[in-house]
Design a binder for these strands. Structure first.
Lengths: 189, 189
DNA sequence: CTTTAATTATAACAACCGGTCTACTAGTAT
DNA sequence: ATACTAGTAGACCGGTTGTTATAATTAAAG
């Protein structure tokens, strides 16, 4: 999680960005190397098992990165409704500003590999669980029941991945904004 | 090797299935040909512009195929809440039965290509719009306002794509079932 | 300095990619 | 029978893929 120090982190960061935006099979090793300014030797030194191992590291990095972003956004308001709206609007805003480097956090790679690579699938699952847990905790703190909180946490995860996908496909930030507006109806106790 | 139908449709069907489950870059032409039992000559005879043109045809096919499925499911109940729940539970059921051949309708390919192929992106956008329109019409028929219906239609689209993604990554049909249970809160007028 | 380990840089690898090309079959109309 | 055409089959191409092996470089330790 430290900044640009060793080559390993640089490679992970570049891979994370590229995998997120274009998927696992859509990005080649050469492109990752070019973007990160490193060479093949370094990649296979740090990731002896190649592309798959790198992808898992990239997903883990994205998991933590996104988790921090979620936490920071949810802290802004005590009330879940306002907090989640703030979070979603943050995403929408980010998409509006620099749409090129914005991808489904891990949706694309998750869909591509769910049937072809069990290790990557598990890494994606872990990320989704991590984010959901943050949502759940926020809801529990406001008195939602354990069951209800878990259901809503899952739903928010699904809505966000789907919403980001729609933003990408329509090249507009409207989908996420509309989703944010529906949050109050959803979180009504 | 001409089966009951012409080769073009066979290729489109095979491509549709493979693209849906593993994405655009995750599937090679040779695999599509092997699966469809045709040869390269036929493919480039019907799709002179190659893989991209085939992908668009496959997406259009998926669009109509899924649209029919949605219409059939929504017809079962007049009340939107029950109708949408039936639709989502259908999907969940289908995933439980044969999870291998179940993919995000087009989520994966949409994410992969939104930044790399404008024609494919537009085909995906058209599919999403088509499905949303069906949702909207169902809601309008029950007295929802135009604005509210459109918002909910988009939300349902996002929830479904996200929910299917979560089903794939967790190898469980629970996500879609949980989403179905939340529908009543969402559609409350 | 010398020696040794850690890291990086290339070159080469088979396998496969999407795409092109030509030969071939089968059916139809003349 | 002949000529024409729609459609099929598959070998082949240049380029790229992920991976491996090895050489060159740097850093650390004695």
């Amino acid at each position: 999680m430290t900044d640009k120090k060793n080559a390993k982190d640089i490679i992970i960061k570049a891979a994370s960005r590229l995998f997120r935006t274009r998927g696992y099979y859509g990005v080649g090793l050469n492109e990752i190397l070019k973007e990160s300014g490193t060479a093949k030797g370094s990649l296979y030194y740090y990731f002896p098992n190649g592309k798959e191992e790198l992808a898992i590291a990239a997903i883990d990095y994205t998991k933590e990165f996104v988790a921090d972003k979620i936490r920071r956004a949810l802290e802004k308001f005590e009330e879940p409704i306002q907090a989640f709206q703030a979070h979603i609007n943050d995403l929408s805003e980010e998409f509006g500003v620099h749409k090129e480097i914005f991808g489904l956090p891990i949706g694309t790679i998750a869909g591509e590999t769910s049937l072809t690579s069990e290790p990557i699938r598990l890494a994606c699952q872990s990320a989704f669980e991590c984010w959901q847990l943050i949502y759940v905790e926020k809801l529990l703190a406001s008195g939602y029941s354990e069951k209800h909180a878990k259901e809503l946490g899952l739903l928010i995860n699904a809505m966000l991945e789907g919403g980001i996908l729609l933003c990408l496909t329509t090249k507009s930030r409207e989908p996420l904004r509309i989703i944010a507006e529906q949050i109050p109806f959803l979180l009504k106790k």
